[in-house]
Write a protein that binds this DNA or RNA. Structure first.
Lengths: 208, 208
DNA sequence: ACCGCTATTGGCCGAACGGACAATACCAAT
DNA sequence: ATTGGTATTGTCCGTTCGGCCAATAGCGGT
């Protein structure tokens, strides 16, 4: 009968969380955790070995994070069904996860029953977007998005670099660096570079 | 026989995590989860009702966070044994937890066996500090600490306020605000207010 | 081919920043 | 009582910032 169970691969750097999830899911006759990974590379390997029905993936992981892993995974296995399960509600993480081909995104604050339902939906080929997530997606859709270049500049702002320094780092004139900073201030609705950095952290554009 | 089990109160806003932990701990004959709380207020109430041997508390919670809850709990029940179990490795959270009277602090990246051992140690009256945590505490001990006033200023820097604005908000001259900012730059080893904000987030002085 | 977005660069200017030097007042600890 | 840390305030000055004007080049989509 266990052949009918939904075979799950857990990916989370928190061993406690993995163990807890495994216990919980295995207690449900509909599921069976067939493998666990503590990092992205292991996740890829285990997926190849076990070809699970659904992957439960944490976004935040040291080294290769969940979204990067998701990218690699979908390259090799476009049909892979991945449910991002995370404590992070960073807008950017959500957007990037969906873009990277996640079948769903729910937070760890979800009730176990919701998680179970989500896994079943994913397995059936559906998509799962939590209520909080939907709201964020909606407001992001109409919002302006930060370009790759601006993201690089933001990362340098975080390090306390001046426009001149940024220009040197990116091999552009200080004037151009200034233009990027100005664009960031507008897009992030920040009064100065300090607030821009703060907004960067709030939006998940910058990681602690 | 269940009378000999260590009675545990779980406090975590993530239902999935609670369920997982409960499953895992209850599978161990040494433990018994006797109650779960999803927020600080509930945690206090449940503690009073059940008087658990050990409290497993998450630091990050919406509303009253784990550290605030810990404060309140220790006021009413100075003998309460609390193990902070969190994914956060923010220096400031750790320092404040220990100061608030936590008996231990370990991350969710710990192995289940480590968690079990930690709970037993706590229950026996000992203290548990993870290896990563110890390192952070050590470097913090010799490091300079940010004052309350500077913390207020940092919070305003984050909002993009100028020295003049900060002065108005705190009812001090712009010059004094500038002095606090200067102190922050030195203590946080930041080149400008933008980097100071970044360091604030990295150290957990600022929350997303 | 044309349009929109991005990246790039320039000059000008007032306001803000950050460093350096120095001083006073308060409070807690020794 | 003296010491040390914190908070407070001051002036001077060179550097940097951020806003405003405008322009060119490239790239992808209609």
């Amino acid at each position: 009968m266990s052949e009918n169970r939904i075979r799950i691969l857990l990916v989370d750097d928190h061993a406690v969380m993995r163990a807890g999830l495994a216990n919980m899911l295995n207690a449900n006759p509909a599921f069976r955790v067939i493998a666990e990974a503590g990092d992205g590379a292991t996740a890829i390997t285990l997926f190849r070995q076990h070809l699970p029905d659904v992957v439960l993936m944490d976004v935040i992981m040291p080294g290769q994070d969940g979204i990067q892993t998701l990218h690699v995974l979908r390259e090799h296995f476009p049909a892979a069904r991945v449910l991002m399960l995370t404590s992070s509600e960073m807008e950017d993480d959500i957007i990037r996860s969906i873009k990277a081909g996640a079948s769903g995104y729910i937070t760890k604050a979800a009730l176990p029953a919701e998680l179970a339902a989500a896994i079943k939906t994913i397995h059936a080929g559906g998509r799962v977007i939590g209520p909080v997530i939907e709201r964020i997606l909606a407001q992001q859709a109409c919002g302006i998005q930060v370009t790759q270049r601006e993201l690089e500049v933001l990362a340098l702002l975080r390090k306390g670099l001046s426009n001149a320094d940024i220009g040197e780092m990116l091999d552009i004139t200080p004037r151009t660096a200034k233009a990027h900073v100005a664009a960031l201030l507008v897009k992030l609705e920040a009064a100065d570079r300090a607030e821009a950095v703060a907004r960067g952290f709030e939006r998940g554009l910058l990681k602690p």
